[in-house]
Design a binder for these strands. Structure first.
Lengths: 224, 224
DNA sequence: CAAGCGGTGTACCGTACGGTACGGTTCCCG
DNA sequence: CGGGAACCGTACCGTACGGTACACCGCTTG
């Protein structure tokens, strides 16, 4: 199923990167309706023929935009050594801040809107691409962070994926969907550091292993 | 007739409801690309002229679909009297199950995809309509539920909206966005009752007022 | 210098959609 | 019974988009 591009490195030339940048700008400014091949060619001073030569078709161009953007937002690496408790909490807060910042970004929102709008139709691969190129790296970073925290004795959980989803929910809540729908959240919700700190506090109250929580997190119901 | 809409009563005739039903089916089956006026007219055995007479233009039709669908999913009313602790927990679990069920529904996903895809363009009102007609009633139900729980001494929180957002995040996590992107969650995440129960357990560990949590929830950082 | 390659700009084609107009039919109401 | 309103089915129009073809240009390279 994923034999589409098994070993094709999605590396683009500088010229193509420029074109992708222009396309992203157009998408952010005008939505998917403004993202026409003619419009991109005009704004990027290139020919439509070059667009099709480079990216195949419109969907290939869209996919290239996603991979290009996600390559720019490569998540920072995980922790090297075993951090202390406060340092580990700081790592979690940093992750939360990064997550909120990325998800609130104009380009991220525009690309997610594009992929979501395209999903639901038969054979829409943009959604899967966003999932794979955009979200999986973030999840991988969080998972390694969580497991490092558990190994260092700061966290208690059984299923890493479950803990990650809980962390994600506490950080993001319904903010992402509301932003995708065009809502303008109140200023308190825009305060990324405060929101991140609160979310991590809550997460540590659920899965922290330091204080009295050591008895058992109780966060898992094993339905199988 | 049972609920008096503030400004414009979005009441449609039975025939128009049938048309909206067909349109929703087309949208669910084929995505927004399959939702053409000609297609709706053909599938609903009506004329395009009637569509425009009834709904104005395509956007009016889309808006009618949203209000029609949300009117069908009117959230159940809140609790009447002061429930006991276990009964209140049951109310929370029921709310969580309803929320997960609604958000995972085909029609809800399709309409959210439509509105999200349309958002980002200048003057896109569908997103705001989904927010208003679809999410606000759910939030209102949750808020009244939360405040009833606090009044009954089962919950401790200062800001209702904040508590609601935490509850929402614990219940929904990133499931909604993943579904919107076309992801197929693993079967464990499809187990609505188990997920709801876990989420409510976690929420009560953060905001429950019964046991040792009575000392202080600590869930609020007041930045201002 | 000449050949060739990659790229630009533009013109072009087919298609598909939103929206409108029109003839024919049904059904209600006076 | 007759008039008219609502509506269906379809044909039609303008537009705009994806995708292709082509002529021209500049730069590299032998």
């Amino acid at each position: 199923m994923d034999q589409v591009a098994p070993a094709a490195p999605p590396e683009f030339s500088a010229r193509q990167n420029d074109v992708l940048e222009v396309a992203l700008r157009l998408l952010v400014e005008g939505g998917d309706k403004a993202l026409t091949t003619a419009g991109i060619a005009r704004a990027a001073n290139c020919s439509k023929e070059s667009l099709y030569k480079w990216f195949g078709d419109r969907d290939g161009l869209l996919a290239a935009m996603i991979t290009y953007q996600s390559s720019k937002v490569r998540a920072a690496a995980g922790p090297g050594a075993r951090p202390g408790r406060e340092a580990f909490r700081g790592l979690l807060v940093t992750f939360a801040e990064d997550l909120l910042t990325v998800l609130s970004g104009d380009v991220s929102l525009a690309l997610n809107r594009l992929a979501i709008g395209e999903a639901g139709r038969t054979e829409a691969r943009l959604g899967g691409l966003v999932l794979k190129a955009g979200r999986r790296p973030i999840e991988a970073r969080a998972r390694s962070l969580l497991e490092a925290g558990r190994a260092a004795g700061h966290l208690a959980f059984t299923d890493t994926g479950d803990a990650y989803h809980t962390l994600y929910g506490l950080i993001v809540r319904d903010l992402h969907v509301r932003l995708l729908l065009g809502d303008s959240p109140d200023p308190a919700e825009r305060n990324v550091p405060a929101r991140a700190a609160t979310a991590i506090d809550q997460f540590l109250r659920l899965h922290g292993a330091d204080e009295k929580n050591a008895k058992g997190p109780g966060g898992d119901t094993g339905p199988a």
